[in-house]
Simulated scan of single mutants.
Amino acid sequence: MLKKALLLATLCAGALNAAAHEYQAGQLHIDHPWSRAMPPVAPTIAAYFVVHNEGKTADRLLGADTPIAARAELHEHVHGADGMMKMQQVQAVDVPVGGEARFAPGGYHVMLFELNRHPALGERFPLTLHFEKAGDVQVEVAVQADAPAASVPGMKMEGEHKH
């Protein structure tokens, strides 16, 4: 009986660790930063989150950095002229007044290059987001097996892209 109780407590703790986490920076509200757990040989990982602008002025995400990677870039998926999905780096992402900037598989994301370590499933790692008006905001990115259910409505999740 005690073993079952300990197992249940361990499983619940893991579920709570993966539960949504939020950050507030002035008028910006950042929901559940996450990354998909990747094998140790993966050359890159991506981070996802949603930035809501609850204020009266627009803002822009200008970049990001993290101690687990030498380089972080803002990227987006776009449809090429040939109909194929491609990734491209963007210099900034607008966060409109009363709107949001959604970083999700198949859309905007923060790509992390030259990893000095691969965070494990259930772990969190720091990511600093650099906003034009709100300034620097440090968040903790939860490493998960799959995307949160609300991350990309109606979209089937596929593996991370390679560069």
Rank of each mutant, 00 (worst) to 15 (best):
P67D: 10
W34Q: 01
Q91I: 00
V51I: 13
A70R: 04
A42R: 01
V95D: 05
D65L: 02
R60T: 08
P67C: 03
V110D: 03
M38H: 11
E54V: 00
H52A: 06
Y108I: 04
G122K: 03
D94F: 09
A92R: 00
L115K: 07
V51G: 02
T66L: 07
E76Y: 14
P96D: 11
A18S: 08
V51F: 13
N116E: 05
G26Q: 04
A13Q: 00
A81M: 03
H32V: 00
M84V: 02
M84H: 09
I30L: 15
A47T: 08
A64C: 10
D59K: 01
H77W: 14
A13H: 00
I30D: 10
A120Q: 12
R117S: 13
R71V: 02
G26H: 06
Q89A: 12
S35N: 03
V95K: 08
P39R: 10
K86F: 15
G106H: 07
C12F: 14
V90S: 02
L16F: 15
Q88K: 07
Q27A: 13
P105C: 09
L11K: 09
Q88F: 10
A120D: 09
R102A: 15
A81H: 03
M111F: 14
A69C: 13
G106A: 04
Q89Y: 04
V97A: 12
H32D: 14
V50T: 15
L11H: 09
E123K: 06
L61M: 06
G63Q: 02
H109Y: 12
A37C: 06
R117N: 11
E100S: 13
H52N: 07
H29W: 13
L74Y: 12
H109C: 11
E76V: 11
M87S: 08
M84Y: 09
D31Y: 09
D31G: 00
A37P: 05
E73C: 09
Y108K: 01
P40I: 01
V41P: 00
A120R: 08
H52Y: 14
M85Q: 06
P67N: 03
A92D: 05
L121W: 12
V93K: 00
R71C: 08
P43K: 02
P105S: 11
H21Q: 05
N116C: 02
L61H: 07
Y108W: 12
T10V: 03
G99P: 04
G14P: 01
A81T: 03
L62H: 07
V93A: 04
D31T: 02
G63Y: 10
G122A: 07
H118A: 07
R60F: 14
L16S: 11
H21A: 02
L11F: 14
G98N: 04
A19Q: 14
G80M: 04
G26M: 06
T44N: 15
K56L: 07
T10L: 14
P39G: 14
L74P: 09
M84L: 10
A64R: 00
L11G: 09
E76K: 04
K86G: 08
S35Q: 06
R71E: 15
R36T: 08
A69F: 15
D82W: 04
V97E: 12
E22I: 02
N17A: 12
M87N: 03
V110E: 02
A69W: 15
I30C: 13
